[in-house]
Amino acid sequence: MTERAHPTPRVYWMIALILAVLTAIEVTIPQVSAFDGVKVPALLGLGAIKFGAVIGFFMHLRFDRKLYRNVFFVGLLGALLLFVVVLLTFEAL
């Protein structure tokens, strides 16, 4: 698959604004006791959205060849597997 055109600076600024707002929400969550019940999933979810926005738009994985995406996701999957195996081995999960 060939590459698609990369976004415009306007899109990059929008993504940066979204990242800044998400970071502000992330920082607020641990400070507000009302969010205690949803703290872990909310923070992991927000982190995942930020992660996806950076790799998708700033690293152009949404627009570049699928090969890059596949190579990177193999590493990411390996890291997650390693994470689960280590924590299960030491009974920390």
């Binding site: 090969l67 890059y68 190579v71 990177f72 193999v74 590493g75 990411l76 390996g78 890291a79 997650l80 390693l82 994470f83 280590v86």
Partner: peptide
């Protein structure tokens, strides 16, 4: 990209 994939595992550890 291969290097960055290996770095994922490094930081994962």
């Amino acid at each position: 990209w291969v290097f960055l994939a290996s770095e994922c595992m490094f930081f994962g550890a």
